[in-house]
Simulated assay, not measured.
Amino acid sequence: MIHFLFGIDPWFIFYTPYTPSFNRCDFISGRDIGLPFSGLVYCFPSVANYLGGDIISGLLTAQIHKGSELSLYMDIGTNGEMVLGNNEFMIRVAGEAGTALEGGISKQGMRASRGAVDSVRIVNNEMIITTIQNAKPIGICGSGIVDLLAEMLLEGWIDYSDRFVPGRSERIVLREGEYVVIYAWENESGSSEELLFSQTDILSFMDTKAAANTK
């Protein structure tokens, strides 16, 4: 983002060894970079891909590099970054995070806004959903995905390998060669189409969760 702000080619950061074009920023007039004021602007530098100025500023504030006690600093957003260390060493890891929480791993996933399925329950083998602002469902957000998978596992709709169990519910059907669960029928959805969560969506969610848990 700092590259774009200063009009500098960012492509170096996308290739090995993933280093920025610069890692030191001086104070600069806002008007010199297209901002509508003449005050001074300072941007914290990035060190590498997924180790940007946001986490650098956080580390300086937390000052874990000055203490002897082992500390963990986490910055969870669209990506998740973690830095572990003290005054002797610091190591960092990064990976995808927010996409799973915002429903981005599903074709019909969405952020937590109007019409997003935000909770799911299965009672007596019947699915009950709620949506944000009680609108007709148009997709599913992260909290809805977590509920959906947990409830399906508890009710035996999926097994411990995250696979659908056909026959457990009329909502588990084949679509385009793979099993899906329909969490809103056509006449229930705000988009007038079936809202589905597929086997591929489940595996994508589990891959993302595993990546976050093993950073």
Rank of each mutant, 00 (worst) to 15 (best):
I13S: 05
L149Q: 05
T208K: 08
I8W: 06
T16E: 13
K209C: 05
T208H: 13
G53P: 01
N79E: 00
P36L: 05
F205R: 04
N125M: 02
F197R: 01
A116W: 02
N23S: 10
V47W: 03
S119E: 05
W157F: 14
R24C: 03
I158A: 09
G103V: 03
I128L: 14
L51I: 12
S169L: 07
Q199F: 10
P10T: 07
I132R: 12
A211S: 10
E81S: 01
G58V: 08
F89V: 07
L59W: 07
L203T: 14
I158E: 14
N125H: 10
Q63D: 07
G85A: 06
D26A: 15
R171W: 02
G142A: 08
S57L: 04
T130L: 11
D201M: 12
L60A: 10
L101G: 02
I202M: 09
D26M: 12
W11N: 14
M110G: 06
L203H: 14
P36F: 08
Y179V: 12
S204F: 12
G95R: 01
E193P: 10
I145C: 09
Q133M: 11
K107D: 13
V41Y: 03
L51V: 12
A212E: 08
F37T: 04
I129D: 01
W185D: 08
F37D: 10
W185N: 13
M74A: 10
